[in-house]
Amino acid sequence: MAATVKVMRRPDPGKTSYIRATLKGMALTFKHMVNPDKVTLQYPEEQPDLSPRWRGTHRMEVHADGRPKCVACGLCPTVCPANCIRLVGGEDDQGNRYPIVYEIDEFRCIFCGMCQEVCPVEAIHVGVHFENAEYTRERFVYDLDRLMEQDHPTTLLWDPSDPRSE
């Protein structure tokens, strides 16, 4: 089957003026300069307004005495669909079950928030936070100490006044 080719005619550069088009473009630019409804955000001086249900990198809640709230029950690694949580449980000197190793691979995480939802002691949370840049890949595996250091606000996975999104 023969291909059908439509030949477009190019405007002749010698006979075409661009002044009209340029003025139209400049007019639009000046209009945006004075437009009060501008969308550009002066990041990082201006910070975006994140939704309270934004699901960002994790944070571990701590007790008043500095121990992690996690009891190493194993539900978050079980429920995690991305298999990004590594947990090794143990017993501390007071006989409490606690995580000896608790690591979250934030690269592998899909930020579904199910770890927070399943946690019976409200220890692990996804956070309202997005600035995660690092210089090495290894730094994206957050260990327990790092998760406990995080201080960004935690996510409300649902609107408390409308928990079923009705």
Binding site: V71, A72, C73, L75, N96, R97, P120, V121
Partner: peptide
């Protein structure tokens, strides 16, 4: 105490 119980 299912979360910390080994039988869970």
């Amino acid at each position: 105490d299912c979360p910390i119980c080994d039988q869970s």
